[in-house]
């Protein structure tokens, strides 16, 4: 897992605590070391809860089906979300379209515990993400690189996940995104450390980097000092096996989202439990070998290399 988040940085970088950022980022901290599972009905939600999921993502269709069905993918029917909220006692998350702030208002009114402003649904705004600070409910957003992650945090996201390539069962894109974020944090940290202390040259280099990422210098600097994202960072998009989950944990993620990987596989309950065990014991290959044994068929999946650019969901988001 990643270097520890300092205990006190659950605050908006501009020092604005009026919107409970510590409480919003705090729930994400409680989910660390856990697995968040996509579910489409109460029955699946119960399977996820019994498997040890730390939260469920309530959806009408898992990403693999969204991909197969095509058309416009929107926020789920509130009746479905309510049914899932009634079925389990763990936190329930739900997805809104990128930029669709009214879907977010509706999800907040329903009382969901987290909103995922997600590229898996069809974007509703070609240029803007939702301004997230004003909501009481916390947000998680996807990213492909550090700039995207920090832009989402500035907008108010209290948790970040890699985008990966949802609904494929191919972990390659999640790995690419996590490695990209880490490489850029390292580069920023190196700039900071070059002269041992802040001086004009350091500041100029970092400001240039911040500008190219379209983020504030202050947030980039904070990230470089922490040597990690300043909020909880999960892996998502294409995770299908216990080994995939442990791979993302060893790469430095704080926890894992599993979408289509569980309920599109042969034995969902068994695979779900195995992935939960793998995320706790991600550094113990013996446990990983044990839980990877006899899981039945994994989801068939789509090789990301063979996809046309227009088929990729991760490119959505700005």
């Amino acid at each position: 897992m990643a270097t520890g988040l300092p205990t006190t940085n659950g605050h908006h970088p501009n020092g604005d605590d009026s919107n409970n950022f510590a409480v919003k980022a705090g729930l994400a901290r409680m989910l660390k070391g856990g697995v968040i599972m996509d579910v489409v009905n109460a029955e699946q939600a119960r399977v996820a809860e019994e498997a040890g999921a730390v939260a469920v993502m309530a959806l009408e269709r898992v990403p693999a089906d969204i991909r197969a069905n095509g058309g416009v993918a929107r926020m789920s029917d509130p009746a479905l979300i309510r049914e899932i909220m009634d079925a389990v006692t763990i936190p329930v998350m739900a997805k809104a379209r990128i930029g669709h702030f009214v879907e977010c208002q509706i999800l907040e009114a329903l009382g969901v515990d987290y909103i995922d402003e997600s590229e898996v649904l069809t974007p509703a705004d070609h240029a803007h993400h939702v301004a997230k600070h004003g909501y009481k409910v916390p947000f998680v957003c996807g990213c492909r690189d550090l700039g995207e992650a920090l832009r989402r945090i500035e907008e108010g996201a209290a948790m970040i996940r890699t985008k990966g390539e949802a609904g494929t069962g191919d972990v390659v894109e999640a790995v690419r995104h996590e490695r990209a974020v880490r490489a850029e944090i390292e580069r920023a940290a190196e700039i900071l450390e070059e002269d041992g202390k802040a001086n004009d040259a350091t500041e100029t280099s970092l400001r240039t980097m911040a500008k190219s990422m379209r983020v504030s210098y202050e947030l980039l600097r904070q990230t470089a000092e922490l040597k990690r994202l300043p909020v909880v960072n999960f892996a998502a998009g294409g995770i299908a096996t216990p080994a995939d989950a442990a791979l993302m944990m060893q790469l430095g993620c704080d926890g894992v989202f599993v979408g289509s990987g569980i309920f599109k596989s042969g034995d969902a309950a068994k695979r779900a439990k195995a992935i939960v065990q793998a995320v706790t014991h991600y550094q113990d290959p013996k446990v990983l070998a044990e839980v990877s044994t006899g899981l039945g068929d994994a989801m068939v999946g789509i090789n990301c290399e063979s996809m046309k650019p227009g088929e990729k969901l991760a490119v959505r988001g700005w």
């Binding site: 409680m30 040890g52 763990i90 936190p91 014991h281």
Partner: peptide, 15 residues
């Protein structure tokens, strides 16, 4: 620590 108590008790049992 804090976390999800259902997860912790299930993982504790299985571990």
């Amino acid at each position: 620590p804090g976390g999800e108590s259902t997860t912790m008790s299930l993982v504790a049992e299985r571990s």
